[in-house]
Design a protein around this nucleic acid. Structure first.
Lengths: 346, 346
DNA sequence: GTATATAAAGAAAGCGCTTTCTTTAGTTGA
DNA sequence: TCAACTAAAGAAAGCGCTTTCTTTATATAC
């Protein structure tokens, strides 16, 4: 159907080997012949069949990317970072992105992850980047390692067995965040975590606990609630915490989303932030989002999402070029001060 | 290196043709042999080399997607719709997404579009979906048509020469939006458009003008400003419009983003919405975003972004299955009433 | 001039599959 | 029993390239 290398060879009056050599800039070919071949290619709008090339070269020019979501700001920014960096660092490569979608239970998502991973391996990607909120299962890890395809994991968890990982230090950031509150004089600090099922959730909560401990503040079970990352649970947790006999003077949330639920609720209750209560979130996705300027202020820890993506590609690149060293890269977070912390009232 | 079909044939004691037949569920093969082959495949974790398959079958199992941005809500939701629908409608296909990125001038973006398009064609995608805010150039269109690869364009413009298109009716929606204001009694309605360079921008503005005309309201040049889609220009246009000798009682914006800039400015000026001034946007991306509940209310026209993506895949699917009819699908928009329209004061 | 190294080209094998074409085995019918 | 099928399998060609191996042309040396 479409023109092929053989045709070019015939039209240029050379052998197919020669044509291949000029296409790949390899071997010796006389300038005159090179010209001729290039001209014919130009005239015929020929482009080599990638399947045939891949078959011979044993590559796919494809980097598989598994991304948690295609609509949540945090993940889309990671993806944007990955995409951008791939085109600048490995222009011949193309991202093949698979989303875990928005639906379903934890278990289903974990299965979906396995499926997508298997699919990428069947597709024989040249490299793989995995950016999901779940922890990689033992089984997936060993499949991955057995495949000998270079891969890097974004986030996963501290102490992951993955050979290459980039993430933030949730615990450290959370310690620092909590300590800011403590330094202002807060002692009754509540913590609303994300589902502790997630590694990032427990890491962050550990940071909170660690900060309390350092300052010899006793953690109260009543002050620790496990949320579900929803806006609504943010509101509810405020109601719950503020109905305690001894109310907290500050509430730290595991994610911005819950914190925004809290802000909403506090507004309803006509409690002013930070005069009457201090709050903070984690993620900084409002900073990334379309409506940054319209969203109410919130102290938070900014996860540099795009940088995570970029760094992952960098790591993958070196792995694809033979670097076999195990690496774990930590990207620095940044505290965003939008003045929702103040000295406690009492 | 890795195991191939020949190996499977040998291990199963059959010919490679037979193995191929069981893999593809084609031709006649005795149950006993099928079993045997399947068992060997299972044991060896064999999976066929996609490049070789593609070479023979003359497909790539790849659907190229060019998306305007990977971080703006509108586009990410379109992409999510596309992705979701591809996995459910054509599970063997995989999206190869290329973003136009966020940077650069209109001209550069137009070039980038051409480049990406050429790349997808070189990659020999089985189908292509294009979702960008620019209009497709004549040249790109003819390249595309010449390639005979099925493609569908999301949005583009009314009267596009693309054989398959899905979009919304910007004009109609804008007429309706404007008429809502008119029905409340507004006659001094200003309009802040997106850069008229964009088709959607002029289509929407046309709707505004048409609505005025229908109600015999004379359009005033002073009431029509061309913005740049930024938050800031939303603020500025408010200042500009409200410093006119005869102030408008309502302002309609070509996009939500500008409207939010306006809200910001109006709050600064302590002008209450909608009591002192009515406003509206277009896009409804706040509805899609991460912080829906936290963003100030705004009357707007909701573009069903995911549906656009889904419908595009549906159209592509039928095209890939031989439907050659020219089709233009219009997805219905929805007016979102968040009470930023009121009867004008004077 | 011939011998020798090198540059440039072609012939042909082969990457891992699918598919046509051919052959063999198995079934049915009289 | 043998002809006439059909079902099942294999042989082999070929998809469009890359690359090795071999041959031919050209330059360098003596």
């Amino acid at each position: 159907m479409s023109i092929n290398l053989e045709d070019i060879a015939r039209l240029a009056g050379v052998s197919s080997a020669t044509v291949s050599r000029v296409i790949n800039n390899t071997g010796n070919v006389k300038p005159a012949n090179r010209e001729k071949v290039l001209r014919v290619i130009e005239e015929t709008h020929y482009s080599p069949n990638p399947s045939a090339q891949n078959l011979m070269k044993k590559t796919t020019n494809t980097i598989g990317v598994i991304i948690n979501s295609l609509v949540r700001d945090h993940w889309t920014h990671i993806l944007a970072g990955i995409d951008e960096r791939i085109v600048e660092l490995m222009p011949t490569q193309n991202a093949l992105v698979m989303s875990l979608g928005s639906s379903s239970t934890q278990e289903q998502r974990q299965n979906l992850l396995s499926q997508k991973l298997a699919l990428l391996l069947r597709k024989r990607c040249d490299g793989i980047i995995i950016a999901v909120s779940n922890r990689l299962s033992e089984k997936d890890l060993s499949t991955l390692n057995a495949s000998s395809v270079p891969y890097v994991v974004i986030q996963d968890f501290k102490g992951s067995a993955a050979p290459r990982r980039v993430g933030i230090d949730n615990t450290k950031a959370s310690v620092e965040l909590t300590e800011r509150a403590i330094r202002l004089g807060h002692e009754r600090i509540a913590y609303v975590s994300s589902p502790l099922y997630y590694d990032y959730a427990s890491e962050r909560r550990d940071g909170y606990l660690h900060a309390l401990k350092k300052s010899c503040i006793k953690p109260l079970p009543d002050y620790m609630v496990e949320g579900d990352n929803s806006f609504e649970c943010g509101s509810k947790s405020v109601l719950q915490l503020l109905s305690l006999p001894v109310k907290p003077t500050a509430i730290i949330f595991g994610t911005d989303r819950m914190a925004f639920g809290a802000i909403h609720q506090l507004n309803e209750m006509h409690l002013s932030i930070p005069e009457e209560i201090s709050i903070a979130g984690f993620d900084g996705i409002a900073e990334l989002g379309d409506y940054h300027s319209m969203v109410p202020p919130l102290n938070t820890v900014l996860q540099p999402a795009e940088q995570l993506g970029v760094a992952a590609v960098d790591l993958l690149y070196s792995a694809m070029n033979g670097d076999t060293s195990k690496q774990s890269l930590t990207i620095e977070t940044r505290f965003i001060d939008r003045h929702t912390f103040a000295v406690p009232r009492n």
